[in-house]
Design a protein around this nucleic acid. Structure first.
Length: 368
DNA sequence: AACGGAACCAACCGCTGTTCA
DNA sequence: GTGAACAGCGGTTGGTTCCGT
């Protein structure tokens, strides 16, 4: 025998709450405290379902709710926490005093998500995506209005990549930080390398298909996320503890969110150029630790390549999980070894064919 | 001023894990 | 042990407001 029904399903009021109803609910909870939502509506004289009362209280009437516009620090924390936790709105809300999960969810969907898309950043994976972004926005903002000859050269150099969306994404992780001086020159050097890598990967994928080998076992998406997050957090030079993060770090369960700050998000998002990938923020002295980082390029059967940069990917995101698990033919890792060399590794039967050390082409330390 | 589309957000829906009779 | 209700959560809806034409 189970419990008695909580309430009659019919005859209960739905829709927006009136001030009178709010008053009744607040008065009752002030006197009796919250809890036992089943009997609360009847005792408080409300023609509402207990669930509706609970939602109204927790999302709107609770005295500790902070209303009004989100501050910059709150917005920053939301983006960062979302990059770690995914759509775990309650978990995010627990780290933002006075904000409800519903409010954060609404704010994400109506403000932050759209802005990230405008910036060319996938709001699910937090990875820069050039298919969401105009090529011209890779350049520094002023270039969009007054392009220099170098800017135009960069655009021309990018043109051959137009048919390779994932290489464009990879390029986007390098180019924004390399707008001046030697770094810009090195970025130009990167472009032919990207094309070379693309062709080599296609050749390896073709060979792998001809050998008709089963796809390599894939780690669970959550496991991959934890590994990626851990690796990101272990990278020196990535810790960027703003006051918000220091507050978060007071709670052990927030350790990852706090220490990963620099690896995941910079402090400002008004400009996509501020969204510098973790790699760009590293000091040259950290090069010895680079073996812990890699960018993964996974190829699917239809040759639609996916690039995950060094930023962490939420495990709870179905899209992200799908992206990880959809790889079937060849998984190629774009990484950096202990010397700071760019290394491409295909972890299937063709792996041996595709280990390229690129220190001759590109001095990666200039980007760190 | 009127209209239509976009943006916003409170509230609901449906699912899942937990609690309890 | 069982099953129904509870509590909590994320996704979605629909009413309202804003804004451009």
């Amino acid at each position: 025998m189970g419990r008695a029904p909580c309430c009659e399903k019919s005859g209960l009021k739905k829709g927006p709450w009136t001030p009178e109803e709010d008053e009744k609910l607040v008065a009752y909870i002030k006197e009796h405290g919250q809890g036992n939502w089943r009997t609360l509506p009847k005792n408080a004289g409300l023609s509402r379902c207990g669930k509706s009362c609970r939602l109204r209280w927790t999302n709107y009437l609770r005295p500790d709710i902070k209303r009004g516009r989100f501050s910059f620090e709150e917005e920053e924390a939301i983006i960062q926490l979302h990059s770690i936790l995914g759509n775990k709105w309650s978990a995010i809300a627990a780290r933002l005093p006075g904000r409800t999960d519903n409010e954060i969810k609404n704010y994400w969907n109506t403000h932050i998500r759209k802005r990230l898309l405008r910036m060319g950043i996938d709001p699910v994976t937090h990875v820069p995506r050039l298919d969401l972004l105009d090529l011209s926005s890779l350049l520094k903002p002023a270039a969009a209005y007054y392009p220099t000859q170098a800017d135009l050269d960069t655009l021309r150099a990018l043109e051959p990549l137009a048919g390779y969306p994932d290489l464009l994404r990879l390029a986007s992780t390098f180019l924004p930080a390399a707008t001046t001086g030697a770094a810009a020159e090195q970025a130009q050097l990167l472009l032919p390398w990207l094309l070379q890598a693309q062709m080599a990967q296609q050749a390896a994928a073709t060979m792998a298909q001809q050998q008709v080998t089963p796809p390599p076992p894939q780690a669970a998406a959550g496991e991959q996320f934890l590994q990626a997050s851990t690796a990101a957090c272990q990278m020196p030079g990535l810790v960027h503890a703003s006051p918000t993060q220091q507050q978060l770090a007071q709670h052990p369960q927030d350790h990852m969110a706090a220490t990963c700050h620099g690896a995941v998000q910079p402090t400002s998002y008004d400009n996509q150029l501020d969204y510098v990938p973790a790699l760009m923020q590293m000091a040259p002295s950290d090069a010895s630790n680079l073996q812990q980082w890699s960018s993964t390029v996974s190829s699917s059967n239809n040759n639609n390549y996916n690039v995950n940069s060094g930023v962490s990917t939420p495990s709870s995101s179905p899209a992200a999980a799908g992206q990880m698990n959809s790889s079937s033919t060849t998984t190629t890792t774009y990484g950096l070894n202990a010397r700071g060399d760019v290394v491409i590794t295909a972890d299937d039967d063709a792996a041996g064919l595709l280990n390229m050390h690129l220190s001759e082409l590109l001095d990666v330390s200039d980007y760190m």
